[in-house]
């Protein structure tokens, strides 16, 4: 388990250094995107339209923050991760097209995303679900917001962050996925549980 502190934009070479169980902190720019923003971003790409923000080398954050407007400035009040599996249907194309290096979320992602991360050089950083103030305190500034018409949870929030983490590297760019390992372990444990409770599979 090694601790890394990376600044955005992150290079493919740096991201390939990370292995599962490493801990990562990010300084620089991270951009939130949930279901609707992923869908729209991929539509833009298909139509050859530019995204309002260049995501190359940045981190995409599965998050719908609580924000408040103080004067004409937005402030991130609470900003923990949302469940990433919902983005599994978009993420491989998203990584391929926009060259993001880190996907931040909770709950892990599946084989499609794991394969894309290995192929194009990206990792999944698990941030503790619900730890919204821990996240908000690392957000130094809301640099901008795009696609507010999707509603505040679904908009693209562009955050300037300092030592954003801890992110548990749960999927690396070498095909390893902690969540898939845990799932295998759970399969084994299921047998023991059934035995203990006197149940039949």
């Amino acid at each position: 388990m090694t601790e890394y502190h990376f600044k955005t934009p992150i290079s493919e070479e740096d991201i390939r250094k990370l292995k599962v169980n490493d801990v990562l902190y990010i300084t620089g720019t991270i951009v939130t995107a949930r279901d609707q923003a992923h869908r729209r971003a991929l539509e833009y790409f298909k139509e050859g339209k530019q995204l309002p923000v260049n995501l190359e080398g940045l981190a995409v954050f599965h998050c719908g923050p609580v924000v408040s407007k103080e004067g004409d400035k937005w402030v991130a009040v609470a900003a923990g991760p949302t469940t990433s599996t919902r983005m599994d249907i978009f993420e491989d194309e998203f990584i391929k097209n926009f060259k993001v290096r880190v996907v931040i979320g909770k709950g892990g992602m599946g084989k499609r995303t794991t394969d894309a991360m290995a192929k194009y050089g990206a990792v999944y950083g698990a941030f503790t679900g619900g730890a919204a103030i821990l996240a908000a305190k690392a957000i130094k500034k809301v640099k901008g917001v795009e696609w507010l018409d999707l509603g505040t949870p679904e908009a693209l929030w562009i955050f300037e962050v300092e030592d954003f983490g801890p992110l548990a590297v749960a999927i690396d760019s070498h095909g390893n996925n902690i969540f898939m390992d845990v799932a295998k372990n759970v399969e084994e444990n299921r047998k023991k549980i059934y035995q203990k409770l006197g149940l039949q599979i």
Partner: peptide, 24 residues
Amino acid sequence: TQLKAILDNIELAEKYKAPICQDT
């Protein structure tokens, strides 16, 4: 590590009087 982050976050929420989780 996760439980530590959870406990730290609970303390921060109380200190700053802010919602524990962004999903209220």
